[in-house]
Design a protein around this nucleic acid. Structure first.
Length: 591
DNA sequence: GCCGTTTTCGGCCCGACTGTTTTCAGTCG
């Protein structure tokens, strides 16, 4: 999708290539780190690609990478990367991606046995030639066989909603184990990432209880494979059959069991992100301290202070460690090494309780499951004070979109319900299609009758950047539009969505006082976290909505809120978190 | 390849676990 993502992918691949060619690990890490920073960068780097000084100003980008970015902007490729890639068989990257196989082993397979793909590897297992490699015993081979099987049965990272449901099931089980004082989620799920690689759990227990906890974890019915079973750490692969069309969900899960006095340092460590942790350790080193999962210790130059009886400066809580490092306490969602260590105080990020309004919901009039009354009662029961009912517009024939006369009738029904139902304010709205050329799906006189216009792209989502930008800017500039719904139209793991230059979209939204949606549905989460960050930096308003088509969809609000928090969103910039009067005044100002 | 109020060269975060080894390399997070 955008330029940054393309450059990042090229650098990522280059790092893997260097790894397979046996280059220094530090060089590899430098490439993958630059790739990550560039992928997350809130501004489109194309605009500064010729400005080497500006590029080098980005953390993790030096002269070498800056030149590659400039080259990529000019020619669409990196000559050196292509030259290196030509030396490595393309199929080898899939081998490197297998669980348990790293660069050293894959390189040996390639150099010694001519293995160039997963298929080659399978053959080498079957014909016995793999066993000829050093350190390649029967168990290792069996593990590789299993990893190949697991990889072919898994499709990438798991959506946060699915991962949350599985994690809660595991939590409940572990919390029932006798003598286990506490169990918490860590890892990317705690940080609220849109997709989850592995589930991470942290338990507080000691002695026999710790063993019982690990045992309970490894013997759950859903465990398909045990990868590690140590004293403090267990690692498994889960298979959960949820009776869904897409088949069973497979996901890895790790459990660490620690005593209560080191809980904080362990939780910090296992929550990550990895690069946030690296930053914290660097910070610790500058203060002549050393940080690991057992605590923050004075650095005496020797390793493993915890096992030498050294007393930690902090370890029981995350708060105590951040404080001892001279940092504000940083919420998990922003622990991504995206500049959070520069913060002077804990940011007041938006919380679910701040939201008094949902401004995007569907009824049976189009493709929702609930009537106006049912939807209103559901929203009210969840504590909302304002609900906008926004059924689909006429072009969405497949979703039973409303023709103008039906919409006029619907507006009347919503107003009638609003006068009758107490305790929640109902607004008449529409989720209006932004047609391929940027025109809206209703005439202006009808749009003007609506309290809320959410303008969204649904069709023609494979447009070129040029067409997509023209289309979306036209919608943003429309004076009757309040919110741009799921602005890119992406579906996680399924569809890229429109290739938008996000800082230009943000600038236009800020200029025209239009809010950009964070659609909380975990299939969408659109805008995504890095886009939200760009919007926050660029001064645009945001709107977090559940896009409810059914009662249960309101349960997805936390994912939208987490995405907002990951983008450093504060309540004052989110229209759903404004007071009722301020919100209604703002909506009315566009009428 | 990146980075620098001790450095423009010489560092670069830290530990658990596994499997194959007689003391450790490789992988992972």
């Amino acid at each position: 999708m955008g330029f940054n993502a393309d450059v990042a992918a090229a650098l990522e691949r280059m790092g893997e290539t260097l790894e397979l060619l046996g280059e220094s690990g530090f060089k590899v890490v430098a490439h993958s780190r630059a790739a990550r920073v560039i992928r997350d960068y809130p501004q489109d780097l194309r605009s500064i690609a010729s400005d080497e000084k500006a590029l080098v100003g980005i953390e993790g980008v030096g002269k070498g990478i800056a030149k590659k970015i400039a080259e990529f902007a000019q020619t669409g490729k990196i000559a050196e990367a292509d030259k290196l890639a030509a030396q490595v068989p393309a199929g080898l990257f899939d081998v490197l991606a297998l669980q348990g196989l790293g660069p050293k082993t894959v390189r040996a397979m390639w150099q010694e046995l001519g293995i160039e793909s997963v298929a080659d590897l399978s053959r080498a297992i079957d014909d016995g030639s793999l066993a000829g490699l050093p350190r390649m015993g029967a168990k290792t081979i069996e593990n590789i066989r299993e990893s190949i099987r697991f990889a072919s049965a898994t499709q990438g990272r798991t959506r946060i909603g699915t991962a949350t449901a599985i994690a809660e099931m595991v939590l409940e089980r572990l919390r029932q184990v006798e003598g286990v004082d506490r169990v918490e989620i860590a890892g990317s799920l705690r940080r609220g990432r849109e997709t989850i690689g592995d589930l991470d759990f942290l338990a507080v227990a000691q002695g026999a209880a710790a063993e019982r906890c690990s045992e309970a974890f490894r013997t759950m019915d859903e465990v398909e494979r045990v990868l590690a079973a140590g004293e403090t750490k267990s690692s498994v692969q889960l298979k959960i059959d949820r009776g869904s069309r897409s088949g069973p969900v497979r996901i890895g899960a790790d459990l660490r069991v620690v005593p209560a006095e080191v809980f904080g340092s362990a939780w910090l460590y296992f929550t990550g992100s990895k690069s946030h942790n690296v930053r914290l350790r660097e910070r610790a080193q500058k203060k002549k301290l050393t940080l690991n999962e057992y605590g923050l210790f004075p650095d005496d130059g020797e390793p493993a202070p915890q096992s030498r009886g050294v007393k930690p400066r902090a370890s029981a809580t995350e708060t105590s460690i951040y404080k001892a490092l001279g940092l504000p306490v940083l919420p998990p969602e922003i622990r991504e090494d995206r500049g959070e260590l520069e913060l002077k105080e804990t940011p007041a990020l938006i919380e679910a309780d701040d939201l008094i309004a949902d401004l995007h919901a569907h009824t049976v009039a189009s493709d929702g499951r609930l009537t106006i009354d049912e939807l209103a009662q559901e929203a009210k029961s969840r504590g909302y004070k304002v609900l906008a009912i926004t059924d689909h517009s006429q072009s969405q024939a497949i979703a039973n979109g409303l023709k103008p006369d039906r919409l006029r009738e619907h507006i009347g029904a919503i107003r009638e319900a609003d006068s009758r139902i107490k305790g929640i304010r109902l607004l008449a709205g529409s989720e209006v299609d932004i047609l391929a050329g940027g025109k809206l799906d209703y005439e202006d006189d009808l749009l003007a009758e609506l309290d809320v216009v959410v303008a969204s792209p649904h069709l023609a989502l494979k447009q070129t950047e040029k067409h997509a930008m023209k289309r979306m800017l036209r919608a943003i500039e429309h004076p009757l539009v309040h919110i741009i719904g799921h602005p890119t139209g992406r579906l996680i793991n399924r569809r890229e969505g429109l290739p938008l230059v996000i800082d230009e979209i943000v600038a236009a939204a800020a200029e025209h006082d239009v809010a950009l949606e964070i659609n909380a549905n975990d299939r969408r989460l659109d805008l995504r976290d890095t886009h939200v960050r760009a919007a926050v930096e660029g001064g645009a308003l945001l709107s977090i909505n559940c896009d409810a088509h059914d009662a249960g969809h309101f349960d997805m609000l936390p994912y939208g809120v987490a995405t907002g928090r990951r983008g450093w969103l504060t309540a004052d910039r989110c229209i759903n978190a404004w007071g009722e009067r301020k919100l209604l005044n703002w909506l009315a100002s566009k009428r």
